[in-house]
Nucleic acid binder design. Structure first.
Lengths: 135, 135
DNA sequence: TATTCCACTAACCTAAAGGTTACTACTAAC
DNA sequence: GTTAGTAGTAACCTTTAGGTTAGTGGAATA
């Protein structure tokens, strides 16, 4: 069978791969339902376990505990234990988490643009692309 | 019980929420194991179904088919059917997918930085944070 | 005519993420 | 002494993402 070749902009393929792996890494440590929410919550100030659970709505203690451990392993969060009187545990963002600035900015800008786009399409009666509900 | 309040930088909370939702939207349409890989593959030129399957290593036809449908719904990909002789289906990125530029750039830059950081920690004998294997 | 390629789909399965409910051991306040 | 708050853990369940294997119907090739 004849092979129809279509346009083909050339790229440096190995560089493409390393970028792709890098994106994979980033999504691996930031992906999932809760990690960024927790980071956002902590960005307003240090919080204790139960404070976090109240602020990050819908998260269960089990999941919160797991996520905090992973965030700590990945160097985004520090755990401080205060032992005066009652033992209190305080979670704090590290400086390393500040390096996420550009990523969070780009994601949120794109997300807002996308959301606005969907809203426009709904107004003009076009098909609605899938995605989280836009209330 | 006495409540120990810790530092508390103030933010505009509603703006925080909308950013968070936006980030959620972005991760929703881009997250998962395959979507970005498919987009990257198509960024080098249009491809047919089986070409895509060969290029995006490890993906099964079932999953590829599902992902392409979602990508089409979200407006990243167009499906062209050529019916001269054999029916051939060609997948093409839309202009809308170009708007992902900043997101992909930020993610890949951060990911490369993170990977390099982990490599450094391994050399200096520190604890290795979790993440995908760095070969 | 048999084989191969095309673009998929169907049916089934596994593993991981996340949710639910209850519980622990401790302290402090009432 | 009872109640409530602290920071979680244990055991179990559901949902979803994704993987596996096989098959379909049509056209081109050998």
């Amino acid at each position: 069978m004849e092979t129809r070749k279509i346009k083909h902009a050339h790229h440096d393929t190995t560089q493409c791969y390393s970028r792709l792996n890098a994106i994979g890494d980033a999504l691996y440590v930031l992906g999932g339902k809760w990690k960024l929410r927790i980071i956002m919550a902590l960005s307003e100030g240090n919080l204790r376990f139960n404070e976090l659970q109240r602020l990050v709505k819908g998260i269960s203690p089990r999941v919160l505990s797991n996520e905090l451990k992973e965030l700590e392993l990945n160097g985004f969060v520090k755990r401080h234990i205060h032992t005066e009187g009652t033992v209190l545990v305080e979670y704090e963002l590290t400086e390393y988490s500040d390096t996420l600035g550009d990523v969070l900015y780009a994601l949120s800008e794109w997300g807002m643009m996308h959301r606005e786009n969907i809203r426009k399409q709904m107004r003009t009666g076009d098909v609605v692309p899938a995605g989280e509900a836009v209330e």
